[in-house]
Amino acid sequence: MSPLHSPSRAVVRLVAGGMLIAAVWCGLFPRLLEVGPVKRHVALMEERRVDPSAMYYTELERLPLRPAWVDDVLVLWP
């Protein structure tokens, strides 16, 4: 664990880092969203209601269930 740094240096570092994060998240990332392939990827995900940030299946917009068409294509229990 890092010891506490001098207050003035800590404030300067936190403010500088915070500004950098704000610039990237609020400036750079929104511009990248306008780049062709990125824009198409996001549009497809929104159209299909997919949340790519889901860590586990319970976080998905739709819970995965056995698709109805699977029984026509696969023998699940021979």
Binding site: M45, R48, P52, M55, Y57
Partner: peptide, 19 residues
């Protein structure tokens, strides 16, 4: 990651996404 699996699957198509 689960979310990335669904995203990649759906990019291939609905059936691929569901499987």
């Amino acid at each position: 990651a689960t979310g990335a699996v669904v995203a990649a699957g759906e990019s291939l198509g609905k059936e691929a996404g569901e499987v």
